[in-house]
Amino acid sequence: MKAINFKEFGEADVLQLGDAPEPVLRPHDLLVRNHAVGVNRADLTHRRGGYGRANFGDSDIMGLEIAGEVIATGAEVDGFQTGDRVMGIVGGGAYAEIARIDYRMAMHIPERLDYIHAAAIPEVFVTAHEALVHLGRLQAGDAVLIHAAAGGVGSAAVQLAHAIGTQVFATADASKLERVQQLGADRGIDYKTEDFAAVIAGATDGRGVDVVIDFIGAPYLERNLLSLADGGRLVQVGLLGGGKNAALPLDRLLYKHLQIMGTVMKSRPPQVKQAMVRRFSEQWLRHFERANLAPVLDSVFALSKAADAHRRMESGLNVGKIILIPFGNGA
């Protein structure tokens, strides 16, 4: 089969289309012919050497998110059969024509969605649900601040928070704020020209928000805590701005009864990942069938152009998901 390989860590041009052996089917696996593959920031870290020569459980090949057709099933698989259209999260191996996925990490693709749109769902929406609902305990009537709201997880979080019935504040570049508000944000905040903590204080009469979802890290930590209401929860999902030398106002943390939590899917044990997928699919999958939720697509590249897809993500210009298609048109 064809797959993306790289012999050394480095810039995007190290990614090359080549040959690789097909994955071996295990008892709990589905073998999937990929029609579309999601690109994630973890792929950039992998390419640059941040994980070393990582094998995340399924493959040495990079890529964590697939959508395609089941071509074989393991002996202990339940609920899936050959010919099913599935999407899901894999432990590596997505950047290839064929991948294997533990069936407990797979979801049936809603009938109204094609493969390309399906590939834009699993990683970002499962992560967003975990941060907002499972950890953040967001409920109708709450207020939430979502940073990097034009990115993959951020745009998914905005949609979920809006669907729950909350007041949604969202930071993004000024050029992306209109799109973020179309997704459900009540107030878009230009992170370059506006102080989000001041905006939150003014808009909530000093109360603050119940939940903050942050991907930036150290530069935002102090203002994130200042933006939280009594009993508020900060869920840290990424560290795009770095994770060291952060100012932590312990008095605010103590007297406001605040909570700080972190979540990373990739490093979780398999049973925890499976529970995350199950929680998301049980609560939200039907909403995609009804068009209440929609994956946000930025751009689509052929698998052979994976380097260009990485450059697109590195540019910071994307709004929503970047997708690779191994062959055909991904329909």
Rank of each mutant, 00 (worst) to 15 (best):
L303C: 06
L31E: 02
F56V: 13
N329V: 10
R137W: 13
H162Q: 12
L183R: 00
V296I: 15
A106R: 09
L293K: 04
D190I: 10
K176F: 03
D84N: 14
F6N: 10
G188S: 07
F215K: 01
T171F: 07
S304C: 05
G74W: 10
A306P: 09
G242W: 11
P270V: 12
M276E: 15
A156W: 03
A67N: 05
F196D: 07
E22F: 05
K244R: 13
P23S: 11
Q236V: 15
G74S: 08
I146C: 00
I323Y: 07
R104P: 06
R137T: 12
L324S: 11
G231Y: 12
G151Y: 02
Y115I: 04
P219D: 02
G152E: 05
I101H: 04
A331S: 15
A148H: 01
L239R: 11
D142A: 07
A94F: 03
L113N: 12
A149N: 02
S304T: 12
D251I: 09
V24E: 13
Y220E: 05
G206S: 08
E314H: 06
A174K: 14
L17K: 12
S267C: 10
G88S: 11
A148D: 03
V77P: 00
E22V: 08
P270Y: 09
G241I: 12
M313D: 01
Q259T: 14
S281Y: 04
V126L: 08
S267V: 14
A197C: 04
G206Y: 05
R41L: 09
A120R: 10
E111A: 14
G202L: 09
G231W: 09
A140S: 14
T127W: 09
L30D: 09
K266W: 04
I98A: 08
L254R: 09
G49C: 06
I98D: 03
G231H: 13
A197G: 12
G232T: 01
L177S: 04
M107Q: 15
R279V: 03
G83A: 08
V153N: 00
L225W: 02
R311I: 05
I325Q: 07
E314I: 12
G231N: 09
V235H: 02
A20C: 06
A198W: 06
A20I: 01
Q274N: 03
A246V: 01
S175V: 14
Q159R: 02
L250M: 15
Y220G: 02
G49I: 04
Q139C: 12
E222C: 10
K256Y: 10
V124R: 08
L31R: 11
L297H: 13
G151R: 01
I189K: 04
A307S: 15
A150W: 00
I164S: 05
A75V: 11
D60K: 10
G243R: 02
V272N: 09
V70T: 06
P219R: 05
V235Y: 04
F9H: 11
D230V: 09
G88C: 07
G141M: 13
E8K: 14
A185F: 01
L138D: 00
